[in-house]
Design a protein around this nucleic acid. Structure first.
Length: 374
DNA sequence: TTTTTTCTTGACTTTACATCA
DNA sequence: TCTGATGTAAAGTCAAGAAAA
């Protein structure tokens, strides 16, 4: 079987990307798309789209039991570039299908492969208060299948369901990367909707558009709570969480990786802002002190007119830790001498010094602030 | 109402490191 | 002790989709 994409209802080209189980579903989709086309008319979107399904035309792959596309003879299906180009339009079809659902909510579509996870297994928030999360219909998990038969879904419900539906819909074997043993185990055990790892572009090797999953608010909230408890999951916790949320362990792992990275980024930004503020405060303090030094120097010049341009020396008594400024070399004056006592008691400096000014004299390296601080 | 810009976030690749057989 | 395989965190990045302008 083969899917054909018809744009404008005039041309029909083959599509190799989806076969097997999806055929029946897409038969419905195609019919619905035509219904949609006739209902909405060609004028509404400027063009009309319909998906039709042709017989399999020598395709070399089939859909495996787990919903993944398998190659039978090793030939890469992406070789058909023309087909790949057509595949890019699948996304538009999906969007169109959403519109179809809005027009005909009783249309039943279930494109998903059988899920190993019990769809009726309630999420924790269900078991807590029994309330369903917003937008979804009852106990039908938004990330599992799309059943629009029973109750007309809301727009949000459609979006939630279809976002995950796309994820399942586009699942296939990861052929571009080497799979680790654990990956294979996870895929076999839990993962039924693992998406391709290759992200060389927004379309994969088969030319199918990658659609981005959006976690529901409930899923995000539950992950947030888990992150508060423990920002790093061990494999067991990861599997448990994935099962509870009906996500793949890989998705949970990626979510936690991103969460850690973005938490760290926010923390770094906060640290930067704090340090920036400290720097500004210190720069202001430095400017104030430099200004005071200038004032003191000016005061020194005016109050000591006889201060000649003689070599000066700052000295500090090792016993009393008092500073003296003199034009003679008194560093060799031994303590407890008359000269030392005279310096210590009467003329430590040529002018009175405040404690702050003394400290400045003791640290004469304090000069004008660096240019980057001023 | 439509278009453009910005932000959020799910997912990917690469690298480095730890552990184990 | 060395080596290769494996798993995973961190850093950087891309891009879809939502939100804001």
């Amino acid at each position: 079987m083969e899917l054909g994409l018809s744009l404008g209802g005039k041309s029909s080209k083959t599509f190799h990307g989806i076969t097997g189980k999806a055929h029946d579903d897409f038969t419905k989709t195609a019919a619905a798309a035509q219904t949609f086309t006739s209902a909405a008319g060609e004028c509404s979107l400027g063009f009309c789209m319909a998906l039709t399904i042709n017989s399999l035309n020598g395709t070399n792959q089939k859909l495996s039991d787990d919903g993944y596309i398998k190659e039978e003879d090793g030939q890469n299906i992406s070789d058909d570039q023309e087909t790949s180009r057509e595949n890019r339009k699948i996304e538009a079809i999906i969007d169109g299908r959403q519109k179809i659902l809005k027009l005909n909510p009783h249309l039943h579509l279930d494109l998903l492969p059988p899920s190993p996870v019990d769809r009726n297994d309630p999420l924790p928030w269900f078991s807590d208060n029994g309330s369903s999360h917003g937008g979804s219909s009852g106990n039908v998990l938004p990330s599992r299948g799309l059943d629009v038969t029973n109750s007309p879904p809301t727009a949000a419900g459609i979006e939630e369901a279809t976002s995950s539906l796309r994820l399942n819909f586009y699942s296939y074997n990861r052929t571009s990367n080497v799979l680790g043993k654990k990956d294979l185990e996870l895929r076999n055990d839990v993962v039924d909707m693992e998406r391709p790892s290759s992200r060389a572009s927004d379309e994969d090797d088969y030319g199918i558009y990658r659609k981005k999953l959006r976690l529901t608010k409930q899923q995000s909230a539950y992950l947030e709570e888990s992150f508060k408890d423990n920002s790093i999951l061990n494999p067991k916790q990861k599997l448990e969480l994935a099962k509870q949320l009906s996500l793949s362990p890989r998705q949970v792992e990626v979510w936690f990786q991103n969460r850690r990275a973005r938490t760290k980024l926010k923390q770094t930004e906060m640290d930067y802002e704090y340090l920036k503020k400290c720097r500004e405060e210190l720069a202001g303090e430095n400017r104030r002190l430099c200004k005071e030094v200038q004032e003191l120097r000016a005061l020194k010049t005016t109050s000591n007119p006889f201060n000649l341009q003689l070599p000066t020396t700052l000295i500090m008594c090792p016993s009393c830790e008092r500073v003296a400024k003199t034009t003679i070399n008194t560093t060799a004056v031994p303590p407890n001498t008359k000269l030392h006592q005279s310096m210590s008691t009467t003329s430590r400096t040529p002018f009175p010094l405040s404690s702050e000014s003394r400290s400045i004299l003791m640290y004469p390296f304090l000069r004008a602030p660096p240019s980057d601080l001023s």
